[in-house]
Design a protein around this nucleic acid. Structure first.
Length: 285
DNA sequence: AAGATTGTTGCTTA
DNA sequence: TTAAGCAACAATCT
């Protein structure tokens, strides 16, 4: 599923497409994906505009024009937000043209705008959700997220402060959205590789040097992934239905049993904290 | 055919 | 308070 770079790519795409367009209809095929009362949810969106789109970690926040409510959308593992103008065919794919028809069997929420364009929320595994919050609840929710790569308040000081004093496993810690926001299972492995640190290390055993490397790697990887519109392994698509380009830069994720680009030894895959974890046993210490 | 899958939360246990 | 393990959510792929 989308991590910070993928969600940021979707945010930027959606902003250019749906901002200030009046929502004419809200079709909810799977009511369980909406965390509000359905009737209330529809009422708060119908004939309203989205006036801004924000993001915290992997959560999208769409500001509704009443200035009092915010539509939060989480894509979890397989959620997609795809905007289509006019007809219902999209063409995408970073290399090969890809034709898909929308809605498809996983299109569970569909917004229709005044100009007949549509926004499809597709979610095969149905882990994602849409939830309208008032401004207070939205602010409270944002406070629960840790500093995130690429943001103003993310620097070596805030990174170190978030980690220091902990004894937990490095990978699990970096995946904890309340400690550092936005990093998921692909980029955490890539960050550890670039920092030359084993994901199995405990926080309290990391040297100043290693912490610095991890911080720098997190900035580098996340920014580069955003610049490349994210990574598509299977389900991820941006707001235009296109795949991300970062897959060609992956050094360890999904490369188990293949040669490390640096030392030519084999990349290993283990299970750590319940997640598939990729690393180079030679390059990472 | 069992095990894995880009995420998160809640429960249990320590 | 901190941390780890596990199940759950559900569908698909290998």
């Amino acid at each position: 599923m989308p991590e910070l770079p993928e969600v940021e790519t979707i945010r930027r795409g959606l902003k250019t497409k749906i901002l200030n367009k009046t929502i004419k209809s809200i079709k909810i095929i799977k009511p369980n994906l909406v965390r509000n009362d359905i009737f209330d949810f529809q009422k708060k969106l119908k004939n309203k505009k989205i006036i801004n789109i924000d993001r915290v970690g992997k959560l999208l926040i769409l500001d509704i024009e009443d200035q009092k409510h915010h539509l939060t959308i989480h894509l979890k593992m397989t959620g997609q937000l795809i905007y289509v103008e006019g007809d219902k065919i999209i063409a995408g794919g970073h290399n090969l043209p890809l034709v898909e028809k929308l809605p498809n069997k996983y299109s569970y929420i569909i917004l229709k705008f005044e100009d007949n364009s549509q926004l499809f929320f597709n979610d095969m595994r149905q882990f994602g959700f849409w939830q309208i919050l008032n401004t207070q609840d939205k602010e409270d929710l944002k406070k629960k997220y840790g500093p995130e790569p690429g943001s103003k308040n993310y620097n070596f000081r805030s990174f170190k402060k978030a980690l220091v004093g902990r004894k937990s496993v490095l990978k699990s810690t970096l995946l904890n959205q309340q400690i550092i926001a936005g990093i998921g299972n692909i980029y955490v492995d890539e960050i550890c590789f670039r920092a030359k640190v084993m994901p199995t290390r405990r926080i309290n055993t990391l040297t100043e040097q290693e912490l610095k490397k991890l911080y720098q790697a997190s900035q580098y990887i996340i920014k580069k992934a955003i610049a490349n519109k994210g990574t598509t392994f299977s389900d991820y698509r941006n707001a235009e239905g296109h795949k991300g380009n970062y897959i060609k830069y992956l050094k360890v994720f999904g490369r188990q049993k293949q040669q490390c680009f640096t030392c030519k030894n084999n990349i290993k895959k283990i299970k750590l904290g319940g997640r598939g974890t990729h690393f180079c046993p030679e390059c990472q210490k």
